[in-house]
Design a protein around this nucleic acid. Sequence first.
DNA 1: CACTCGATTTCGGTC
DNA 2: GACCGAAGTCGAGTG
Lengths: 251, 251
Amino acid sequence: MPNNEDAIKFVRSHLATHVLVIYAVARVSYNGRAKANLDSNPFLIIIKPDGTFMVHGSRREKPLIWNPPGSRTYIDAQEGSVALLSIRASPAERVMADLYEVDFVGAFDVEHTDNKVMGTESDLVAWLVDHPDYIEKGFVVLEREYDTAVGRIDILGRDANGRLVVVEVKRSQAGPDAVNQLLRYVDHLLQRRGEKPRGVLVSPDISPSAHFMLKSNGLEYLKVSKDLTTLAEKGGSQPSTKPVPDFYSWL
Amino acid sequence: MPNNEDAIKFVRSHLATHVLVIYAVARVSYNGRAKANLDSNPFLIIIKPDGTFMVHGSRREKPLIWNPPGSRTYIDAQEGSVALLSIRASPAERVMADLYEVDFVGAFDVEHTDNKVMGTESDLVAWLVDHPDYIEKGFVVLEREYDTAVGRIDILGRDANGRLVVVEVKRSQAGPDAVNQLLRYVDHLLQRRGEKPRGVLVSPDISPSAHFMLKSNGLEYLKVSKDLTTLAEKGGSQPSTKPVPDFYSWL
DNA sequence: CACTCGATTTCGGTC
DNA sequence: GACCGAAGTCGAGTG
């Protein structure tokens, strides 16, 4: 029979420093912005040193129940089970896990590593600003990431005829929301400057309804090559460190 | 010195049935809709039987690099390392991990469990439809989740005076996007029916800029109690099963 | 399969 | 800490 006391000690001593992996039969509940419950079943529970608490099932990328970074984890013995508690201060949220059978606890020393993702919308905007003729011959950039009362305009410029142009950029297929955003900006500038600007949506693809909305509002569409959306820059992370695994199990 | 061959065999034999947890020093790269790279560092790699592939660091809830459910995983020996490959067919995306030092491999038999989350926007809409007077005395619901060319209207109804009312519901703080959506629907109905409807945004909170946009467009705001956003119904999951943990390590 | 939108969105940036 | 908008968004529902 497993020794819960040892497991509890083990978890406590590694909570702040290691990524903990717990395999246990547990009943889990979440209560906060929403509510959810899991009946007693074997789950994989992962607790990170930053407070992230996750209960994973056998499918999907997202945990079934979780608490975000910054939460605090508590563990204690209970009548016939181990109580695992994760508390987030604000908004108040709590995850409670009753572990009826703890079959594995591992502590893994994982370094903090940031990775830089390349090919984001910001990258595409930057490229377009550097290559204004790609948008249109004679296009001149006035502003980039231009904040207004109704949102941030990706690119504001003038065409060869000197007419104001609002450019909204999407790195993937544009939907109704993107058209909405563009409309918002065009209306705002019309009211603000008394000059009706052109509105151009730039993306590698657009959904049918979004295209319909675009056309019926006199806006324009510029399709960009999919290659442009994965512009490669360079990014990296930190140097290697020695792994220090440690675990506790009875089998 | 660890035996990579055994680790590879172990992974292969559990890929389809277990949640695999691998702790290794690895260099990881992702190439697909975007790109990302991780230098050689100890990471926690989790592979689920549904094809989900995740590389977790010591912080945050989301993996540093991942492939979604439906991806295929391959593992093979390499010169001085173990090559782990995850391929997603469409869109074409691949995650490559070079494991330079495999320190732990665990296979955990996690049952598939669905959990029902309570307190979603859909729950709130349902409650409002059942309690139309909460929106406004004399309010009559005409349609719910009403599809139009510009999107789905949460609730369409008429007020005590017989005037058309569009209701947009948010379960958390409403931002500019919500106002945008509502505006879109109001405009659409005006054009479509030649009748200018009232637009009402319902949420427990609203951001300052969203409220400003709302007012300046003649729309209305109805604040609902936060309690309403966590309406409790009932939900559960499946019965318990026996855990069958299995792992492989050298320490 | 594609489209649409909610999400305990999460996450990063900015004020 | 609040606000704002992107995300390799993910994931569910619908057609």
